[in-house]
């Protein structure tokens, strides 16, 4: 049986890879992908805690399910907004989203 620690290390690595990507990527789509990575890390966390520590209930699994569904809705809105940005700017890199600052 794989130990809890390894699972948590994987999810933590995913989480921080996502944060790193969020801070360093230049394209908004890649940023969105990084955020998805972070959200997947949390889903993994919920499932692992439920399976390994609290096998009596299903709260963690259900939370992961709901979170996946809500994440999908978020991505849909985010991509729709990015299409709108692309229509006006012909570009979706964050370097160009700079009309308003300071």
């Amino acid at each position: 049986m794989i130990q809890l620690n390894y699972m948590l290390i994987i999810s933590a690595v995913m989480m921080f890879a996502g944060i790193f990507g969020f801070l360093t990527r230049r394209s908004t789509l890649a940023i969105l992908l990084s955020i998805e990575l972070m959200l997947n890390a949390t889903d993994l966390n919920f499932a692992v805690f439920n399976r390994m520590l609290y096998p009596g209930g299903h709260e963690g699994y259900f939370f992961a399910l709901f979170s996946i569904a809500i994440t999908a809705a978020e991505s849909a809105i985010a991509i729709a907004i990015m299409i709108n940005v692309y229509r006006q700017l012909k570009d979706i890199s964050v370097g160009k989203l700079e009309k308003m600052k300071f």
Partner: peptide, 10 residues
């Protein structure tokens, strides 16, 4: 909108 949604999901 783009700035808001990205930081909201983050």
């Amino acid at each position: 909108g783009a700035k808001f949604i990205l930081l909201a999901i983050f």
